[in-house]
């Protein structure tokens, strides 16, 4: 990878370079996603050290299996986020005593600083999309995303009817997707 390039390489180009054995590209991928991966894992596991270990596991898996990445199945970010959720869920299931936080639906404060991978405009779009969600939609969606709970388990935990859980999650995801459509334009 050419470090002197004025235009940063795309995520797909970074992954291709990783598949070729470029360690510097792995460092770039960590710079772009390492913190976010750890944050998602911490949200799910409730432990920063475990979360960083999971983030390292995911990036290590990306390093080992970059050649198998298929962009037709989704973006690099979606791939990594799917991996971090999977690895975090694996870790949760491996724990003898589950350490889910008392209220996993409680959202964390979003820092004002922008992600490297997102311009300020993109970040505003995402936050605006999230802002369109009703509070109860957002809490159920985040509970579903950041935990290892099925929709039935969420219903049981929240005391909501299963149908309500399903409809809130679906409604939240549709609003989120619609709000983010401009990012793909």
């Amino acid at each position: 990878m050419q470090k002197t390039s004025a235009i940063p390489p795309t995520d797909e180009a970074v992954v291709r370079a990783i598949a070729g054995g470029d360690q510097e590209s792995l460092r770039v991928l960590n710079q772009r996603y390492g913190h976010a991966l750890a944050a998602v894992a911490e949200r799910m596991l409730g432990d920063r050290a475990d979360a960083e270990e999971v983030a390292a596991d995911v990036l290590w898996q990306a390093w080992r299996q970059a050649g198998a990445f298929d962009s037709s199945r989704g973006s690099v970010g979606a791939w990594l986020m799917m991996l971090v959720r999977s690895r975090s869920i694996d870790r949760l299931r491996a724990r003898a005593a589950r350490t889910l936080r008392d209220d996993p639906a409680e959202p964390v404060d979003s820092p004002d600083a922008s992600l490297e991978i997102h311009s300020n405009q993109q970040r505003r779009v995402v936050q605006a999309a999230i802002a369109t969600l009703e509070d109860n939609e957002r809490s159920v969606l985040e509970m579903a995303y950041y935990s290892d709970l099925t929709q039935s388990a969420i219903a049981e935990r929240t005391g909501l009817p299963l149908g309500t859980v399903k409809s809130r999650i679906r409604s939240a995801m549709i609003k989120l997707r619609e709000g983010l459509k401009s990012l793909g334009d």
Binding site: H35, A36, V40, L115, E116, L141, R177
Partner: peptide, 26 residues
């Protein structure tokens, strides 16, 4: 499309921060 939307939400919620310790592990 739903996965991409959820990814954007997760990344935006995570915010920004250093990843030095992760790189040390790698």
């Amino acid at each position: 499309s739903f996965r991409e939307a959820l990814t954007a939400m997760a990344i935006s919620t995570a915010g920004d921060g250093p990843a030095d310790r992760i790189w040390q592990r790698l």
